[in-house]
């Protein structure tokens, strides 16, 4: 089950528009779920892969989204330009902040990433040219090589799905590589890694930078999905939400991040329909999940099988 689960979930997402989820609201929700899954995957890499718990990850997403804003304002809407810029900007932010943060560990790392995240948040809120606190509405979605198929619901759906699958497989490949082995070893026992002659720092920094780049990609998609960007994209609560998705899904495998993102979005949606006070139920549910699902959702599904 654990082995075929990704193929099953991705297959369901591919078929969803033809399984009665083709209406506007459902497609919007699905796209949002897949984008958040990419974002959660990017956070999984430092948290689950390298053992670096970041509480400032929304900033990377937000920087990707604001790259879209800045270029949109300059009338640059070509995705083949905008997306690489969004990725590079977020990766650069990750590299610069990671170079400092990764020298620390544990709670200190959490606090430093939180502080950097807040800096980015307040910077975004002060950008009056881009709407400040009120945010910025895009002229429209990006074009791809001049074509407007990101406007098309199905086109956008499969773009998000395709990128999600690529990111997932990419992270899996990364983890299994020599680089990933060093990363995983340093998560388990950094002293042992040093004692065999490898310094964990550069590996962690590269992983953190890659994570930033992927988050920038998610930010690019998020901006296009909403056709609107606001400083709230960078708020620390968003970082907390992402961290929650990763933990609920399970740190043991990157697919946990995908499950966590989809599950939380579905839960929010479902509870939101039941009652306007859904957060009162949502909070305790999450607490219970953390208490009783030690390996997260992937752990649950893996364990069923035995």
């Amino acid at each position: 089950m654990a082995r075929v689960l990704p193929a099953l979930v991705f297959g369901l997402l591919a078929a969803a528009p033809f399984l009665g989820l083709g209406q506007g609201w459902a497609m919007t929700l699905l796209a949002r779920g897949m984008i958040l899954a990419i974002a959660a995957l990017s956070l999984w890499l430092p948290v689950g892969g390298a053992g670096l718990v970041s509480l400032g990850h929304a900033a990377m997403l937000g920087i990707g989204a604001y790259a879209v804003v800045v270029l949109d304002d300059a009338r640059v809407t070509e995705a083949l330009v905008v997306a690489p810029v969004a990725i590079a900007a977020a990766a650069l932010f990750a590299l610069a902040t990671g170079a400092v943060a990764i020298r620390t560990a544990g709670v200190q790392f959490i606090m430093i990433t939180l502080a950097f995240g807040q800096m980015a948040f307040f910077t975004a809120a002060s950008l009056s040219a881009y709407g400040g606190d009120d945010g910025y509405t895009l002229y429209g979605r990006s074009t791809v090589a001049g074509a407007r198929w990101m406007q098309d619901r199905l086109g956008f759906h499969y773009l998000c799905l395709g990128l999600l699958v690529v990111v997932f497989l990419g992270i899996r490949m990364l983890l299994a590589s020599r680089f990933g082995r060093v990363l995983r070893a340093a998560r388990e026992n950094p002293l042992r890694v040093e004692a065999v002659g490898l310094s964990p720092y550069p590996y962690r920094l590269v992983a953190y930078t890659i994570a930033g780049g992927i988050a920038g990609l998610a930010g690019f998609l998020l901006a296009n999905a909403a056709e609107f960007v606001a400083p709230s994209f960078l708020a620390w609560q968003r970082s907390g939400d992402l961290l929650f998705m990763v933990i609920l899904g399970g740190l043991g495998s990157p697919f946990g991040a995908v499950l966590g993102a989809l599950a939380i979005l579905a839960l929010e949606e479902w509870l939101g329909h039941l009652t306007p006070h859904w957060r009162i139920i949502f909070g305790p549910l999450l607490v219970l999940a953390v208490l009783y699902l030690r390996g997260g959702l992937v752990g649950l599904i893996g364990a069923r099988r035995g």
Partner: peptide, 16 residues
């Protein structure tokens, strides 16, 4: 991991 540390770069991302 110890063998890897002394045989070439560990900044290799593609091959398992």
């Amino acid at each position: 991991l110890a063998v890897q540390a002394r045989s070439g770069s560990s900044f290799r991302f593609l091959r398992p």
